Simulated scan of single mutants.
Amino acid sequence: MDISGRHEEAGEYLMVAAAVAATIDSNRLRDVGGMGFSTSHGQPTLENTLSVSADAVSALPIVPPGPVVAERGEFYEEPAIGIDPAFESGFKYVESIAERRTVEVAHHAAYAARELLL
């Protein structure tokens, strides 16, 4: 998952979270089973970023069998153990090449969706 728009523009915030349900192996993305999106106009606090992220994961058409994966900066480098309770399927930070590529897909999706909403 990834969030776009955690910065203020013209006195407002528009965060767009994108979650990607994907099948991966250790080195590559094998299949994308769906995407979920969520938006927030709240300030990008840890609480708000967790909420918009959990909403995006909940909007996925299929329940991911594995943990939600994101880059460390998404949740202000908080320890993964503190982020984990926000997601039913668990949480971890990117560890493999395939996970990084999946987060890149989510990044492009979140950015594109945000641009469409502006």
Rank of each mutant, 00 (worst) to 15 (best):
V32S: 08
G33F: 03
P67Q: 13
Y93P: 04
Y93F: 15
A70E: 01
A70Y: 03
L118S: 05
H7F: 04
E77L: 08
A86W: 09
A59F: 06
H108N: 13
G5W: 07
D2S: 15
S40W: 10
V69I: 15
D31R: 14
Y93D: 05
T39C: 10
A109H: 12
A110S: 12
F87S: 09
S51T: 13
D2Q: 10
G5T: 12
E9L: 07
L118P: 01
A22W: 07
I97Q: 14
S53A: 11
A10Q: 13
D55M: 14
M15E: 04
A54P: 06
R72D: 13
S53D: 03
F75C: 06
A80L: 13
Y13N: 08
T102D: 01
R6Q: 11
T102Y: 02
S26C: 01
S40N: 06
G11I: 02
E12V: 00
H108Q: 12
E47Y: 02
I24N: 09
L14A: 07
G90I: 14
A59T: 03
S38Q: 11
V20P: 03
G33H: 15
R72N: 08
S96C: 04
D55N: 11
V52F: 04
E8N: 00
L118K: 10
E88P: 07
G11H: 02
L29S: 05
A17Q: 09
M1T: 11
R100I: 02
Q43G: 01
Q43L: 12
H108Y: 12
H107Q: 13
L60A: 09
S26A: 14
S53N: 03
G33W: 03
A98T: 00
L50F: 07
A19N: 10
F75A: 10
L60N: 06
A18Q: 06
E77H: 14
N48M: 08
S51G: 01
S89W: 01
G36P: 12
G11S: 00
S40C: 12
G66E: 14
A59G: 02
S38R: 10
S51H: 05
E77D: 15
S26G: 09
V52L: 11
Y76K: 13
A109G: 03
V20T: 14
A59I: 08
I83E: 03
L50G: 04
V94Q: 02
L118G: 00
I83C: 02
L29R: 04
F91C: 12
G5L: 05
G5P: 14
P85Y: 06
L50Y: 06
G82E: 15
I81V: 15
V20H: 05
A112N: 05
H41P: 01
E8P: 02
L118T: 05
A106T: 12
E104A: 15
A86T: 09
P67H: 02
H41R: 13
Q43D: 09
S4C: 14
S96W: 00
S26W: 03
P79K: 15
I62G: 00
I24Y: 05
Y76N: 13
E78S: 06
E9I: 11
V16N: 07
I81T: 11
R114L: 02
T23L: 15
Y76C: 10
P85C: 04
D84L: 06
L14K: 10
D25G: 05
F37D: 08
A112I: 04
A18M: 11
A112V: 06
S40Y: 08
